[in-house]
Structures are given as structure tokens and as C-alpha cells.
Amino acid sequence: MAISRPVDPAVIARCPSISTRLLVTLAALLLIAGCGPQPYDPGLLRSPGFGTAEGERRSWTFSHHASTDSYELTIDQGVAAIRRVGPEPWAFLAQMLPEGSIEQLAGRRLVFAVELRGQLDTTEWGKPFEPTGLLAKMWHRPGDGARGAHALLGSERVHSERLPLPGDASLPDWKRHTLEFDTPETLSRLQIAIVMSTGGTLEMRNPSLHIVEPD
């Protein structure tokens, strides 16, 4: 029959090196668990590593206002970085959601999130025409109450939701930023993006898009 007894403090006192090593080991394990990268679920997004993982299909597009020499994009080990090097007002890294997923996203609340780090400034290129930050762009067909050209031509309307960052934001450490938004019942297309429109460099990693389920 197994018998368990409490540890005699005198035994621990006679073996300080063992108890000290044990405490140091436990503290190190707790530190690693608390400070290491946290797992996350990319949800509806494809290529969450921006196409860097082996066998991962790249689903992101890098778009510019006009010329392609004002912003530089680099991708390394799942981290994308956009650096401004010229006068064009904006560039963005975006993903268009597949047509097959639009029906389940119509009339829902979604949350787009990404970890950001970087240093922005307005000293060289001035204040941005539109804010740097997260963007959700939605196309939807006009409903019964549509007016004007949209109703006449049956064309799609577009509206956007944003999470803006200050043009001179300092983000020395990784921090997760979240944009929560509602989609219209008549949603026909959906694009999410990270916009860069000021001086400096903006890094991003671990993007995700999820449906917010009602309570």
C-alpha cells in the first residue's frame, strides 16, 4: 500500500541547491509560457503567413495608389513589413474573401485582427490623405430603396469600415489591433486590408477574420 507523507522542511533545508534549482526551473517555465507567442486561429483568412509557409498558397495582393516605387513590401517568416520610400499617398496589403464564403458572411458581425509593430511619422511626407490602419471594404447590391444611378444601373455600392492609427504612431512592441464591423444583408464582395499611408515602417503578423456569434 502506497503511503504519502508531507515533505519535511528540514530535508529541504539540508538540500538548498536542489530546492533552488527546482524553483529557478519552475520560474523559467512560467516565464516562457507567459511571454512566448500565443496561438491564434486565422479563421476565414487564407495564407495567414502571407505566403511564406511551405505549401501555402499566397492569397494577398499588394496595391499602390499609382506608381509602384513609393512603398516597399518585405515578407520574412510570417511577418510582412511595408516601408514608405516615395511620395505616393498610400499602399495596402489586402485579401479578397472567396465568393463561396460571401453568403455566410452577409448580415453578420465580423472581427478582423492583426498584430502590428512599427514607427510611423509625418515629418517627410506630411499628413496622410487617408489613415494608416485596418480596413474592411464591402460591396453590396442596392436594395429596394436604392436611388439614383445605383438603382438605374443595378451597380454595386461600396462602403468601408476602418480602424485608424495616428500618422506618427510609435508601436515598439507587437500589439493586436481589432476592427469589428457589420456586413450588409446584400453583401456581394468583401476585402480586408492593412493600409500604409504615412512615413516610416509598419510590420504585421498573425492576421485573422472571425464571425462574431450572438450571445
Rank of each mutant, 00 (worst) to 15 (best):
T186L: 06
D168H: 13
H150D: 10
R176M: 08
I102V: 13
L135Q: 13
H140F: 15
L110R: 04
E103N: 08
I192G: 02
A149C: 03
A149D: 10
S160W: 02
W125N: 00
D173K: 07
E130K: 12
W174N: 08
L152K: 14
L187Y: 05
H150A: 15
W139G: 11
L179S: 10
L163N: 06
K127E: 15
L187A: 09
R108D: 01
S101M: 10
E180P: 02
L152Q: 14
L190Q: 06
P172W: 05
E161L: 06
L135H: 10
R117C: 08
L116E: 05
L163D: 06
F112E: 03
S197A: 15
G133N: 09
E185S: 12
R117D: 03
S170Y: 02
P164D: 11
R141F: 12
D121R: 02
V111H: 07
P128Y: 03
A169K: 08
R147M: 12
A136V: 08
S188L: 02
V195D: 02
R157E: 14
P98N: 05
H159D: 15
R108K: 15
W139L: 13
P166H: 11
E185D: 13
R147E: 14
S160N: 11
G167H: 05
L187M: 07
R176P: 08
T186C: 00
P142L: 04
L120I: 05
L163W: 14
G200A: 02
G143V: 08
D168N: 14
E115T: 05
V195K: 05
T198F: 04
S155L: 14
D168R: 08
T132C: 10
